[in-house]
Amino acid sequence: MLTVALCKGRMLQSTLALLPTVGFTPAEDVIDSRKLIIEDAARPDVRYLLVKPVDVPAFVEHGAADVGLVGKDILYEAEADLHELLDLRSGVCRMVIAGFAGTNLRTVRRVATKYPRVAREFFGVRSQQIEIIDISGSVELAPLVGLSDCIVDLVETGRTLSENGLVILAEAGTISTRLVANRRSYQLKAAAIDELSDGLRRATEADSGAHDDTATGTVRQGAVS
């Protein structure tokens, strides 16, 4: 039995487009269904868990799921003990520092974000002491009401930022979807995991052309460099 954890939300659509191309097909309309465990249409030994994105690392780390598809932003914050096998080059977003135009990044003190580790690292390598305000949603609101000097957040189109009068001040890296595996499953279910991983690798490489490395730098490199 191979249990695959999928993120509900933003990334689900692109994941669902990709999986059937490598022979992994959820049996139901995952987007409309309220079910949390979904069987595979053809394989009795595969099932899918629908999990909140931030919970995917925990499900995989503890082995409740053998593998998972999750954004690097969430992986990076979770610091979970698991195998990161593959960059799917989908669900691509930018991790940015945003605020009012003209904000001087060097004097920023309070930073509101859902991504404290990214924020700490970004300002840490610049030897800049900041206070992190941990917020779980509508992060853009923070500078508008004076809660923070800037925000660190994911940006897909930039529309939310511009509608709230904020601009991108700096980039901390690019985020994409990753295939992760539980440490036990990686050894005990090597064949099934390799099949999924190799299939996804072929599909993504065919999709995005040869090694287009610039598309998806990790947060880490982005934040450090």
């Binding site: 082995g63 440490r183 036990r184 050894q187």
Partner: peptide
Amino acid sequence: QFDLGLYPNHDYYTGVVMEGYVDRLGQR
């Protein structure tokens, strides 16, 4: 089984290294 990517987070290892896993447990 050999897993040539296995590289433990310990300075003192020099040769063959091993990790054991049981089906009922996610961690080594």
